[in-house]
Simulated assay, not measured.
Amino acid sequence: MSMLHKALAGLALAILPFGASAAEIKWDMANEYNDTSIHAEGDRLFSSKLAEMTGGAIEITHHFGGSIGFKSKDQLDAVGDGALPIANTYVGPLGGIDPMFLLPSLPFLAKTADEARRLLDVARADYEAIFAANNQKLLWASPWPPSGIWAKKPVDSDAAITNLKIRTYDANGTITLQQAGAAPIQLSWADVVPQLSTGGIEAVLTSAEGGTNAKFWEHLSHFTEVNYAMPLNMVHINLDTWNDLSAEHQAAVLEAAKAAEDYVWEKVEARVAQNYTDMKAAGMTVVTGVSDDYLAALNAAGNKAREEWLAKTGAKGEAILQAFNN
């Protein structure tokens, strides 16, 4: 290269925005859920915003559908150990590590987006402390639409749920549905469709969103709306990765994270209506308006899960629930 070309190249680099030296930082971001999910949309917004704000210095490669080899239950350790720099994780399966991760899915506690976000805000500092203790930083948290029951029939009565082989997503759901008379089994998302295909399960506790993303209508015919819970995904980054960032890049990550969190919370309620439209177009029957008696029975079945959670979290859990309810 001639001296003139070297000088021009140096000048071009000097006038680029900070960090714009073509992806000087590259992250692989894990997410067990489908690339059409509302959480995948949040991830893509985050990476797009971050690339824009850093002039392309931070580049994220998304790995949806568990394609990088980690399930949600594995991702806390993977990010803490540095096997992954960043991940979007459904936190319910992490309840064995810390019971706080089961707070968002306590049955019939937070049934609307406003309630779920208020519960998050009450407990956010506790979540941040847990991630910090595991060599990570919490960037944002976002909800799933309310959980219902996907099955081959309406599940709108005690008789319909009795002995039903149903997938649950965490310990709360397993305890609750067992108390309701079902035959629950906790499965990671990646294992649900294979189990439906082989007849290992005949129903799924999840949102209209989750089932729509996975095209459950290829296996099931009904969705019963019960508004069981609005569980959370959380995005967390390895603390060493975070600390290696410049102050400017850290500020950009936080701003992009806030944009992603706000986006998902803003979109989640409208998403249900779109899911129902898509489900009906695919031939699904959406069952709404189930009886108050049945909902009361499901709520009562959740008492054991709520009591066990309080026994594990003690005064901290009581304080969180009191702050949420006041």
Rank of each mutant, 00 (worst) to 15 (best):
G95T: 05
V204D: 09
P85E: 05
M279E: 11
F18M: 11
T61H: 10
S21N: 14
A159L: 03
A133Y: 02
W144K: 11
D244N: 15
V264A: 14
P93A: 12
D77I: 01
A260L: 10
W27C: 06
A260F: 08
I130Y: 00
A208L: 12
A51H: 02
A182N: 10
N134K: 11
I58S: 11
A30Q: 08
E269Q: 06
P231L: 08
W144D: 14
F216T: 07
I161P: 11
L138Y: 05
L164I: 00
G95K: 02
N135P: 12
D126M: 06
E52M: 05
G210E: 03
L4R: 11
K316S: 14
I149R: 04
K71T: 06
D156F: 06
K73Y: 02
K312M: 07
A78C: 13
E32D: 10
Q136T: 14
I185E: 14
Q178C: 02
I130P: 09
L138V: 12
Y169W: 00
N34L: 05
I185H: 04
I60N: 08
S67G: 11
A12E: 13
T313N: 08
A252C: 11
E128K: 08
S72T: 08
N238G: 12
K280Q: 13
D191I: 02
Q250Y: 01
W27P: 09
S157Y: 05
G302W: 00
N299C: 03
G19K: 04
K26G: 04
M53I: 02
D158G: 15
S246N: 09
W265Q: 08
